[in-house]
């Protein structure tokens, strides 16, 4: 006998609600550690003041269980679905219900506005929202869902470049540096940068956002891509934009590049900026609904 599907669906919804709450009220350890280290090194008075406020905010949000930032963003869902997991559909419905309920309970700010009428649904759901990315994992009976709340300030600085393949890679560090310079204090630096290198226009943007799920300090397993990540990271930290654009050594926390094969005539580069308040939560369960991991 397999597990009761309705019970499993309810369990997934509950875990989703918990994960959404974690995603907006807690800062992941890697970002927490980054700022604690930065606080020890920083000598500039204004920067130190900002770091202390940021650390205080992480602490207070956790203590009170309230959203760290009032911009609880657009909730991006990433599903890794094992091909032997008992539920293969309904995720859109389950996620929509969970999002509607936590929008009232936590509460979240409703960031779902009709692009023509300007009417806010008030639920963080509606036309093609929230965005869900589904990936099927072979030879697996597990389900893993990650949540990335993406605020407007950083998202507004995102860009798709369609470079000329003849000089694409050569020009890449420069155009990214210009983009981040232009963004200045607007995306809430120090930023995390996701880059989708290659693919087609839509895939490069998707990869750029997905790259943000990687832990701080992790490098692409391809050494040439990893070198490019470090090169761009160092270049961005020469910009002197600093925390919240007030000047200083740290403009970028990390750069993550994901690769995809491109058309010979196209060189798409998707770039997604993420604010320092980089919130992520996830959970993983097996086919019986037992929790394997909760972050």
């Amino acid at each position: 006998m397999g597990i009761n599907i309705e019970i499993l669906e309810e369990k997934i919804k509950l875990l989703l609600k918990h994960a959404i709450k974690r995603s907006v009220t807690l800062i992941p350890n890697d970002i927490q550690n980054f700022f604690e280290e930065l606080e020890k090194q920083e000598t500039n008075e204004i920067s130190k003041n900002q770091i202390n406020l940021i650390l205080e905010n992480f602490k207070y949000g956790k203590e009170k269980s309230i959203p760290l930032c009032q911009d609880t963003g657009i909730l991006n869902f990433y599903i890794k679905l094992g091909n032997q997991f008992p539920i293969i559909s309904n995720y859109s419905d389950i996620i929509n219900e969970a999002v509607k309920e936590v929008t009232d309970d936590i509460p979240l700010r409703s960031n779902s506005v009709d692009p023509i009428t300007n009417k806010n649904s008030g639920t963080n759901t509606g036309l093609n929202s929230p965005p869900i990315t589904l990936e099927i994992v072979d030879n697996s009976s597990d389900l893993e869902i990650s949540i990335l709340p993406k605020g407007g300030g950083a998202e507004n600085m995102s860009k798709l470049f369609m470079l000329n393949p003849i000089d694409g890679l050569e020009k890449l560090p420069r155009i990214i540096k210009d983009l981040v310079k232009e963004a200045g204090g607007k995306p809430c630096p120090p930023i995390i940068l996701g880059i989708g290198l290659g693919g087609d226009a839509s895939n490069s943007m998707k990869l750029a956002k997905k790259a943000l799920l990687r832990p701080i300090g992790s490098r692409n397993e391809r050494s040439d891509a990893a070198e490019l990540e470090v090169k761009i990271l160092n270049l961005l930290n020469e910009l002197d934009i600093g925390i919240m654009g007030l000047g200083g050594k740290i403009t970028c926390i990390d750069v993550h590049i994901e690769l995809a094969m491109r058309h010979p005539a196209s060189f798409p580069v998707g770039v997604i900026l993420q604010c320092y308040c980089h919130r992520i939560a996830s959970f993983k369960i097996n086919e019986k609904g037992e929790i394997l991991n909760e972050i």
Binding site: Q50, L53, I54, E56, N57, Y60, G61, K64, I66, P67, L68, C69, Q70, D71, G153, C188, I243, M244, L246, C275, Y276, C277
Partner: peptide, 12 residues
Amino acid sequence: AYPGGCGAIASK
């Protein structure tokens, strides 16, 4: 200027 992202502590 107040640092972005610090909505929780601002509410205090």
